[in-house]
């Protein structure tokens, strides 16, 4: 966040601890990273909310438990550009 001029203190970590909470938040798995409310790697349409591990794909096609760092940087940069 610092790289793109955003304040790292503004990261909010939230625990989703039951199915009802997941439904309410449209939480499709852990970790879900949203920048200004927008998912860094939006889930496929119709993907059901739930307490599960999230499957991401890196830009070179590999399966990963976390988003591609480039996707995260791009999402942050988009928000920084609007600020």
């Amino acid at each position: 966040m610092s790289e793109v001029g955003l304040d790292p203190e503004r990261v909010v970590v939230r625990e989703i601890d039951d199915e009802a909470h997941a439904d309410a938040e449209l939480f499709v798995g852990s970790p879900t990273i949203r920048v200004d409310g927008v998912d860094v790697q939006p889930p496929e349409e119709g993907e059901a909310p739930g307490l599960t591990c999230r499957v991401y794909h890196t830009r070179d096609g590999r399966v990963s438990p976390v988003p591609d760092p480039h996707d995260l940087r791009d999402a942050l940069a988009r928000v920084a550009a609007r600020a």
Binding site: C53, V55, Y56, R62, V63, P65
Partner: peptide, 8 residues
């Protein structure tokens, strides 16, 4: 089936 580590 659903774990990214298992899939990787």
């Amino acid at each position: 089936n659903h774990c990214p580590y298992a899939l990787a």
